[in-house]
Design a protein around this nucleic acid. Sequence first.
DNA 1: CCAAAACCTGAAGATTTCCTCATATTCTGA
DNA 2: TCAGAATATGAGGAAATCTTCAGGTTTTGG
Lengths: 209, 209
Amino acid sequence: MPPSPPTTMQPRKTPIQNRSRVTVEAIYEATIQVLLRDGMNDLTTTSVAERAGVSVGTMYQYFPNKQALVYALNARYLDALAVRIEATCREQSGAPLGQMVEALIETYWAAKTERADVTRALYRSVAELNNDALIHAFAERVDRATAEMFSSARDAVFADVPRANLALVTVIYGTVRNAFERGLSTQAAADLRQDLTTMCRAYLANFSV
Amino acid sequence: MPPSPPTTMQPRKTPIQNRSRVTVEAIYEATIQVLLRDGMNDLTTTSVAERAGVSVGTMYQYFPNKQALVYALNARYLDALAVRIEATCREQSGAPLGQMVEALIETYWAAKTERADVTRALYRSVAELNNDALIHAFAERVDRATAEMFSSARDAVFADVPRANLALVTVIYGTVRNAFERGLSTQAAADLRQDLTTMCRAYLANFSV
DNA sequence: CCAAAACCTGAAGATTTCCTCATATTCTGA
DNA sequence: TCAGAATATGAGGAAATCTTCAGGTTTTGG
């Protein structure tokens, strides 16, 4: 294990021509596959390049080092997730509170479950990365979206929007992740999801008009 | 990075004399400290041995490899956590439901927060380990304890204990972890904790007698 | 058509790390 | 006391990985 260099997470060069865009895309895809197959520990620059069908040199033209590669992959994933959450929030704008909660749970749950193996692999891959900034930026972004959505509810009025928002998103995201890590059966997962909804709605009853 | 060998997680030898027990203890402590200082990535067998004041050879007499060391450390941590949860469950046996929930949240929250840096370091250290079995054993153990506690509540009757139990523990553990990862301010954390309690109680109202 | 820019290649250098083993020291129990 | 068990040592072998760079190929734009 080589020592962790003063890691630069910034991409090295941005693709300009089309073939390089394809290359970079292939590298991302290969990274996921290697992560799934070997795990972060055995993910080597060589194995990724090989799987992507390019040479290591090419990889290093776009990513300054191995960690930056995984970092970028996670940034992508979080961005896609944020986009989905934001879309849900827009759709639910002005809806009743209960429906909002249900929609939010649905979106988050689906995003994590659809490709459970990828989700799990990514969770593991970032553990040793300096991704606090990434996580915080993501949290701020989606918190803003959900807070705005809740504010727009036609059947509620909040004394302290940020507080209620934090409570809801923390409980929802935390529960989904925990449920996911437990590897629940389909039935148990469905029950849990319903109970989670129940809980959130019970909490929200405090604010209904 | 050497390839991941068919890792044996089992300890190699059990200390018999007192000096070796002290040695093993020192190794555990050193592992935590190196984990805090350098992170899992830069944790080397040499650095741990050095910090512990023993030679690498000694370390390898008790742990077959590096991963087994970290694995054992986590097993220890989980055991300590389970013991605390079980104690709380015993104490609350026969109490009112609301009090049980509060006590459980208190215990779990405290355990995770008391030494936040250690908790975080351990979370990160296991990410790449094959610790599913460990996690499942832990979950089963504490789930049994809490389920029994809830069953004993004097002011409630459950149609489906396992289901209610799963909902509660998943929400509580998940929320605490998520809150913890967000690095909330003291005030925000206190608010959240209260809201979490509120939610759980609202959910439990369905079962009160 | 052609010069310049963009892109790709991959062998090899520079480092590091894990773990063993032969040997030395300390402890225990009779 | 003392033989055997338990424990400790630490230099070095064996193995792998990351990353570079000099040079070749493809594309672009005028």
